[in-house]
Amino acid sequence: MTSPVVLRTLRFGTPLGLLAFWWFWSNGSESLYFPPLSDVLDRFVEVWTGPAFRNDLVPSVVRFVVGFALALIIAIPLGTAFGLSSRLRRDALPLTEFSRSLPVAAIVPIPLLAFGPGFGMDVSLILFSAIFPILLATTDGVRGVDPQAVETARVYGLNMRQVLREVILPAAMPPIFAGIRVALAIGISAMVIAGMLSSSQGIGAYVILAQQSFDVLGTWAGLVMIGLLGIVINGTFLLIQSRVLAWHTGWRRAAKEGS
């Protein structure tokens, strides 16, 4: 068996090692398309402390937050209703299945035409791409709640609203969070794609314009920012999840140790 110290070194060391490798390998690189990482980082600082911060980064983040919040507000109640009513679920199934399989990229021209490039287009696209994973996860999560737990709660005289709040939603929370995580990844991609296609404002627009003007360093600076955005958004989500689901993981650990 390998010692825990070695394992921990591998776990944290490999990503850092790869970054270091990139730094040294690209150092003094003459390649046109793989500039030295140090130059990329210099450009990164220069770009994102400049006007691009206010013109591209802030709009992208605001639109993402608004679109995603709307997706949550719509998908969780709707998914709960679908989870509770098999009739509703059956009626909506063809529509949700089709919309869910629709490759998000294909619908970009619709909001582009309907709203024109800008806030409305980006928000509606992020909303559309993020809503289905959350909707499906909520439906499945609510359906999967132990019916005995619901019946027990009813026997103890809880009304339907209390059952929903005290029993069903907490039990459905872990799958809902799994769905939100999937939606985050798709939503971020939608945000970038929307910008790339409309080329007006936003981080996607910034990189595609840099690419079209053969600004290699600028393109890399945009790529690094998108990557950073992805990592920060996911990190924030995991932090919230570990807070909200603390009872769940705690309960699981207790159940494991008890058995």
């Binding site: 046109l32 398309y33 990844a185 971020i188 991609s189 970038v192 794609i193 790339m196 990189v207 595609i208 840099a210 690419q211 053969f214 290699v216 393109t219 890399w220 945009g222 790529l223 998108i226 990557g227 992805g230 990592i231 958004i233 996911n234």
Partner: peptide, 14 residues
């Protein structure tokens, strides 16, 4: 995997 892969598209076009 938290990095949206579509971000690589412009560099790949190069």
């Amino acid at each position: 995997r938290t990095i949206p892969s579509i971000a690589a598209l412009p560099v790949l076009v190069f």
